[in-house]
């Protein structure tokens, strides 16, 4: 006497070797896929970086190579001039003392600035206008005439 489960499993027990092989194949494929996925990520990262730099070179640098070369030469000249100046005496601006005219001008400027930013606040009671009281038009005209 068998239960339906026992009977069903016993009927197909012969397929087990094939199922084992199939299972191993799937698991190996999964293992392989994982390794491939990890490797392919690294490869794709390097490839994309190389591709990007190559593209930059081809599309940005190479078509205007003369311009880039000229710019580079200018930068080299500028760097050389800068180095030559640094090797010599200290800068002329730091060396020269301010003249009397410059000092006078500076003082004038200072005074103007002081006037401009001086505190002009007036007491509130002086500024506040009186309460407006409407008057007949004739009185206003008389006041203006006087």
């Amino acid at each position: 006497m068998k239960t339906p489960r026992e009977l069903l499993l016993a009927r197909h027990r012969a397929a087990e070797p094939k199922l084992d092989a199939l299972r191993r194949e799937v698991v190996a494929a999964e293992l392989n896929n994982q390794a491939t996925r990890e490797q392919s990520f690294k490869v794709s990262l390097v490839t994309s970086l190389l591709c990007c730099s190559n593209k930059l070179w081809r599309e940005l640098v190479w078509p205007c190579r003369r311009t880039w070369a000229a710019l580079a030469a200018v930068w080299v000249v500028l760097a050389l001039v800068h180095l030559a100046q640094r090797d010599g005496s200290p800068p002329a601006l730091a060396q020269s003392a301010p003249t009397a005219g410059m000092i006078l001008t500076f003082r004038d400027q200072q005074e103007i600035l002081n006037e401009l930013f001086a505190d002009r606040s007036v007491p509130a009671e002086v500024v506040r206008p009186g309460i407006y009281a409407p008057k007949p038009r004739t009185e206003t005209v008389a006041l203006l005439a006087a």
């Binding site: 069903l8 499993l9 197909h12 397929a15 199922l19 084992d20 299972r23 191993r24 698991v27 293992l31």
Partner: peptide, 17 residues
Amino acid sequence: PAAWDALFRRYQLPLYV
């Protein structure tokens, strides 16, 4: 992969049936 192997081994025959 060992976990996958164990899982599939557990279910392969019932699934096949």
